[in-house]
């Protein structure tokens, strides 16, 4: 049906046409409430983000991520190659996003672990390495963007390694939504896919038994990189 016709019908029914003899819709506020109450993922209240706050917010992030079966480590730039090597040991090949200045450090780590670098988006990789444009402390989540590279890199390999600069951590879901509203504004070059990843994939479809690692990665490791 044409959009205008579809919406015309909706407008008419909202005005009250043809209720087929049934009662009227309830009266009630039609305006959005001013304040929204905190949700279970509203996140810790934080003061200005100084060094001690970074430690606190990372702790919250790591605890939340561990709670859903993922892992987080806080590393300095100098420690990054060894941290990557620790994850990559045992993997034959890694698909890697364009990581900018961190790219060289990551490649050093992969070399140290004897893990070859595959073409980006390779479906056979057992390790996918991406950055994240945001992290959410309250939930242990990271936001992965299709603008940084293949969607498949964060999706197909059984292990997903995420690099997250510490200054990209926000306290809670509310702050994430504010950023999403900006990122997705029409007229911007919006990434076609933004995925908030919180730990490994999971299901409880068989007898409510939790199983980790279904279609998405079964292992998620986040290296939070301090300055």
């Amino acid at each position: 049906m044409e959009r205008s016709e579809f919406l015309r019908v909706v407008r008419e029914r909202l005005r009250g046409g043809d209720s087929a003899g049934r009662g009227r819709p309830p009266d009630g506020p039609a305006a959005l409430p001013e304040e929204y109450p905190p949700t279970p993922v509203s996140g810790p209240a934080l003061g200005p983000l100084d060094e001690s706050a970074t430690g606190l917010i990372f702790e919250r992030f790591a605890e939340a991520l561990a709670g859903v079966g993922g892992q987080a480590r806080l590393v300095g730039r100098g420690e990054l190659p060894e941290a990557v090597a620790a994850v990559a040991r045992g993997s034959d090949g890694a698909a890697v996003h364009d990581l900018g200045e961190l790219g060289q450090l990551v490649e050093q780590g992969l070399a140290r672990a004897g893990c070859s670098v595959l073409p980006p988006g390779d479906a056979e990789a057992d390790l996918g390495i991406t950055s994240a444009i945001l992290g959410v402390a309250a939930t242990g989540s990271v936001l992965v963007s299709s603008a940084q590279g293949h969607r498949a890199t964060a999706l197909l390999p059984p292990t997903h390694l995420v690099l997250l600069p510490a200054d990209r951590l926000v306290p809670g879901f509310g702050e994430l939504c504010t950023r999403l509203e900006e990122l997705c504004r029409p007229g911007r070059r919006t990434p076609s896919s933004l995925v908030l990843v919180t730990g490994p994939s999971r299901t409880s479809d068989i007898e409510m038994t939790p199983v980790l690692g279904v279609h998405g990665p079964g292992q998620v490791i986040v290296l939070v990189i301090s300055a």
Binding site: S192, V195, L196
Partner: peptide
Amino acid sequence: RITSYVNVVN
């Protein structure tokens, strides 16, 4: 508290 994936498609 949150699902493993929240996919935002644009």
